[in-house]
Structure formats: C-alpha cells, structure tokens
Design a protein around this nucleic acid. Sequence first.
DNA 1: TTGAAAGCGCTACCAG
DNA 2: CTGGTAGCGCTTTCAA
Lengths: 321, 321
Amino acid sequence: MARVAGVSRATVSYVLNNTSAVRISEPTRRRVHEAAKELGYVPHAAARSLRAGHSRMVLMPTPDVQVGPLYSRFFNELQWALSRLDYTVVQYGGVGLQSDEAVRAWAELRPVAVLVPGSGLGTQGVAVLKRSGARAVVTLGPERVEGAHALLMDHHGVGRSAGRHLLERGRRRIGVVVPDDPGLGIFSRPRLEGVRQALEGTDASVTELPLAHDEESAARLAARWRSLALDAVFAYNDEYAMLLMRALQDEGIGIPDETAVVGADDLMLGRLLRPRLSTVHIELPSARELAELVDRAVREPAAPPEAREVLGATVVHRESS
Amino acid sequence: MARVAGVSRATVSYVLNNTSAVRISEPTRRRVHEAAKELGYVPHAAARSLRAGHSRMVLMPTPDVQVGPLYSRFFNELQWALSRLDYTVVQYGGVGLQSDEAVRAWAELRPVAVLVPGSGLGTQGVAVLKRSGARAVVTLGPERVEGAHALLMDHHGVGRSAGRHLLERGRRRIGVVVPDDPGLGIFSRPRLEGVRQALEGTDASVTELPLAHDEESAARLAARWRSLALDAVFAYNDEYAMLLMRALQDEGIGIPDETAVVGADDLMLGRLLRPRLSTVHIELPSARELAELVDRAVREPAAPPEAREVLGATVVHRESS
DNA sequence: TTGAAAGCGCTACCAG
DNA sequence: CTGGTAGCGCTTTCAA
C-alpha cells in the first residue's frame, strides 16, 4: 500500500484518517487515495484497536430464548441509535456457553460497552468485563447487578395490570398461562406473581395453567376448562392468548361472557381476532435514550451506575374481557 | 500476568493454549492458571488474530428489513451449527450504510467468512472481501454473484406453488397482495411473478393488490373487493393473509366460497384462523448443511463456488382455499 | 511536509 | 522444559 503510493506507512495513515494535526499536500493525498482504491485496501480493525487500546464496539450477546417481534424491533432501533453515535454494534452468538465462559468470550473482544439481556450475568461477570476494558456494562433484565448499569425490566407490572383489569371487570377465578418453554421462565414467573399481587387481599384466586405452544396442548387445556371453573385467563402474551382463545372457542366456551381473555404485547394480531383481544401494552425503553445512556457511561466510566425501571405496562381494553 | 505467575509471556501463552508442541511442567501450569484466575486475565482476541493472520469469525450482516420468525429461527440454528464447528458468529449491524461502505466496514473486521443475506452485494463487494482475507463469501439471496458461493432463495417458486394450487381449485381471477413496505420488494416481486408464471397459457388473470400492514389499508381494500371481482387471493404471507382475511370477513365476504385465500410461511397462526389458512410451506436450507458448506469453503478457498437452490415450496391445503 | 521507529498483546521460532 | 525475541498492521511521537 505505502509502496504503491510511493509514501511511508505513516503518511497513508494520516491521509486515510484525515488527521488534522498534520497537513499533507493535495497531490500526496490523491496518490494515497488512488492507491487505496486500486488495491481495495481496507484498514485492519484489530490492528487499529490494538494500537489505540480501545474500540468503539458495543457488544450485545444474542438472547438464548426465541424473542418476539417487539424485541427485534427494539434491537434494530437501538442499533441504529448507537451507530448514529458512531458505535459499532455487534451481536455475538455465544450459544450454549456456560455463563462463565460466555463472559470470557465477550471480554476477549474488548468491547467498549456490553449490553446484556436476561439475567445470566453475575457480579463476577461484570468485574471480568470491566477489567477487560469495558467502560460500560448495562443489563437489561429483572434485577440490578453490582457495578453495572441496569435497565430494569420488571414483568411483575405486566401481571399486575392484567390482574387489576380482570378484577375491575368483575372476574374472580383467574387462570394464568405459564408457557412450558423453560427459557420463558424469566418472563412468565414474574407475570404470574404480578397477577397474584394484584389479587392480594381480595376474594379472587389464581390458577396456574401450564401450556405448550402447540394446538394439542391448548386443546387438552380447553377440554378440561369447565372443570376448572375459571371466569378469566391471563394468557402470558398475545400469541398464547390466540392459541388458547381458539381452543376455547372450538369447545364452545363464550368469550368474554363465560371466560375473559387478556394477552400481552399488543401485537397486531390481537386486533384481528374476534372478539378483539384485550392486551397489556408493553412500553420498551426508547432506543435513543438507551443509546445515550451507553454513551454517557462510556465517557464517564467512573460515574455511579444508573438503574432505571423501563417497562411500562398499560391495559388496552378491547372485546375479550 | 507473566510477572505475577513468575514466568515469561511465552510460557503463559503455551499454558493457556495447551500448546502440544511444548511440554510445560505441572507446577508451572498451575501457577499460570492461578494467576490467570486471580487477575481475571482474558486473552486479547484482536492481538491474537493479528498475530495469527486469520480469525474464526463468521460475519453475518443484519438484514435491513424486518424479518419474520422463520428467519430468526434459521439464524439461531445456523449460529449453533457454526459454533459446533468452532466458528464464532457475529451479527454486524451496518444499518444505513451504502452497500459500498458497508462492505468495507465488514472487511475491516477480517472475518474468515461472510454470509450476506439479500441482494446488496455486487461482484466488486465480493472482491473486496476476498482481498481482505475472507476465505468464503456466501450470498443468501435471489441471484448468483461472481466469485461467491450462493444459496439461491428464489421466491418465484413460492408464487408458482400458490398460483398452481389456486388454478387447481378452479379459481380464475386471482389477486396477489404486494406489501407496501419497499424492503419486502425482493420477496414480493418474485412471488408475484411466480403466480404470473403459473397462470401463463391459461385463461386466468392476475391483479396486483398493494397493501400496507395495518387495518385501515386492509379495510379499504376489502371495501372495494366485490368491484374487483376476484375469486382468489395469494396474500404474500400468513400475516398479510390474516390481516386481509379478517377485513374480508368483516365485509361479509365468504371464504373460501366467494374468495379463496392462500398465505405463505406456514406459521402457527394460520392453523388458528377460521377457516384454517391454506399456505405455502417454505423449506429453508438446513442450518447444518450451510454450516458445512461454509466450513468446506474456508478449508478449500480455491474450489469453485457452489450455487444451490435451497428454497422448497409446498402448498399446505387447509380450509381457506 | 514527510519518514523512521516504537509499541499495542500475542504466538512461533530458536537458543539456552 | 523455559525464556528471549521478532513481527502481525496500525497510529503516533519525534526528528529530519
């Protein structure tokens, strides 16, 4: 590269980085640019960050559970917001690693910030990441972790909203769908607990309803529905709600007269069901705000970690409840 | 690190990499491991790959359109299959970059292989990636690109299957939904064209139906449905099919008697609609096979690029057609 | 205005 | 069996 342009490696670096501290003559600049184009020269990110001692890489491990469209959209927006701030977002697939080795694998990449969804990260993990040079560690999950910023996504509120709504609608025997998928436990357990909280001190009762995401499982549940004597169900989310609602209707159970159904996530499909599905609308944190939080944390790594509750839960009352 | 363990940097390297060419005494190994644990030492991936001259990173740029659950699952499986082969999968968010600079940004990371979804990559791009050291470039899209392996995902077959099926069911005036979302054009145009191909030489006709993914747009289309005098519609995919089917039913249009509806993707939700949605089941390439293709290509970079048609399309006939 | 050279963290070769 | 050392590609300081 330097040879082809007939200049030194240093000069190449100056030209390609537009280093303002040094002035390079126009003809030289042109020669360098031409040589770069001709050779298809692309700088080596690893060498650069090795020399610089830091990178602008924000690492976001892929969540190990299958996430819904809500989260995908959030992630896309976040990526966009961070690239506006000149960060490079990398999603890293540490599938099947133990949390301990996963953290080490992340640390090997020396990201400037790490955004960890879920609850797998411990105090240890944060320490490893920080020592490896991460200036910001942000968890997106149910609880704070020592030393890390936290975007608290507490799903109790989702369950509480649903529970309160059903109470207000005069329901007293309330079923709560708990997906069989163990990966969804971090969401489903707090949602269930939230319904319990909403019903505390009332004469209403909660019944757990395990359910797999397939028709047979739903049909089995629907078949014994009347024996359960429930007058309402919070179906975990809109997709499970659709599944269960269909099975109930196939059994001739009237919705909402006999049983009220409430979903969560406020997906488009809820509006397309008949009766239209009542749901808990979940407000995720604004991607721009999160990006700015990351940026602040990177610039001011000594600042005390912020912890913010970011999950808004509002009931959207439609026809199924 | 080396200081704390009281050995040289080389010895540390030997121990942590289990280098078989050299034998290190057990006490030394222990000392090194202990020091590593104590310091939370994690090797520097950039330095390592700089030294080695290559990495095991497989780069997969995030597709810029919102992709469905089908694709997300495929990507997860692929990630898993590749990590079984000891590759590290990194999803890179080059949102909003021109394809030219996007390719350069990918090349900066010096991945050993690049999997590019969509159709943004040109011959130029492949050349840049190869010159930067990528031993395999694989496109997942509608057409071959010179120098790259190709997993051809030709959506014409999806439209053809739907078209043939509707013909067989005796339909002659066939509408085809074309989503307004311009990003979906690479899928929707070939699907439309496929329907046209299936109908060639018959007395059946095709009508394009632009549609946005919201209720108002669907309602507007449904309101003028009878004036279109269609007896069938291929609704692009299951989600658009659900949207349109609901609007048609709200208009009192009988499905399938008056109008047959066919979706695509074979999502769970199709089975939950009434009538149950006929759909085109799409078979994606096996993640394991793709991972093996990548691995072969990496080991044998001189081999001529493979190009394989990988999109299976089969009609699943249910009740809506 | 340009060039020479040091050094980021790591591994592979060679000498002890 | 272990340590010294060169050099991967880059940026930056210092000297010319």
